[in-house]
Amino acid sequence: MKSGFRLVLGAAAAAATLFAATGCGASATPAASESTVTIEHAQGSTPVPVNPKKVFTYDLAALDNLEALGLEAQGVPEAEFPTSLSKYSDAKFTKIGGMKEPDLEKVAAEKPDLIIISGRTADSYEDLSKIAPTVDLSSDATKPLESFEANARSIGTIFEKSDEVETQLKAVEAKIAETKTKAEASGSTALITMVSGGKLTAYGAGSRFGLVHDVLGVTPVAEVKVDGAHGESISNEYIKEKNPDILYVIDRDTAVGTEGGQAATSVLDNELVNSTNAAKNSKIVSLDSSTWYLVGYGLRSVPTMIDEVAKGL
Rank of each mutant, 00 (worst) to 15 (best):
E40T: 08
E40Q: 09
H41M: 05
H41R: 03
H41N: 07
A42M: 15
G44I: 01
G44S: 00
G44Y: 02
S45K: 15
S45Y: 10
S45M: 11
T46C: 04
T46H: 03
T46I: 07
P47C: 09
P47S: 12
P49W: 11
P49K: 11
V50W: 13
V50D: 07
V50N: 11
V50L: 15
V50M: 14
N51A: 10
N51Y: 09
K53G: 01
K53C: 01
K54W: 00
K54M: 00
F56W: 00
F56T: 01
T57A: 08
T57W: 13
Y58D: 08
Y58K: 09
Y58A: 12
Y58N: 06
D59G: 07
D59Q: 06
L60Y: 11
A61D: 15
L63T: 02
L63A: 05
D64E: 08
D64N: 05
N65K: 06
N65Q: 12
N65S: 14
N65V: 09
L66N: 02
L66I: 04
L69T: 02
G70T: 01
G70W: 03
G70D: 04
L71N: 00
L71Q: 05
L71V: 03
L71P: 04
E72R: 06
Q74P: 01
Q74C: 00
G75A: 01
V76S: 12
P77G: 15
P77Y: 14
P77A: 13
E78A: 12
E78R: 15
E78H: 14
A79S: 13
E80I: 04
E80C: 07
E80F: 08
F81P: 04
F81K: 04
F81W: 01
P82K: 02
P82N: 06
T83K: 06
L85G: 10
L85I: 09
S86M: 13
K87C: 14
S89H: 15
S89P: 10
S89L: 10
D90G: 04
A91S: 10
K92I: 04
F93R: 00
F93E: 00
F93H: 00
T94I: 05
K95Q: 07
K95I: 09
K95H: 10
K95C: 11
K95W: 08
K95L: 12
I96K: 01
G97W: 04
G97K: 03
G98P: 10
G98I: 13
G98M: 10
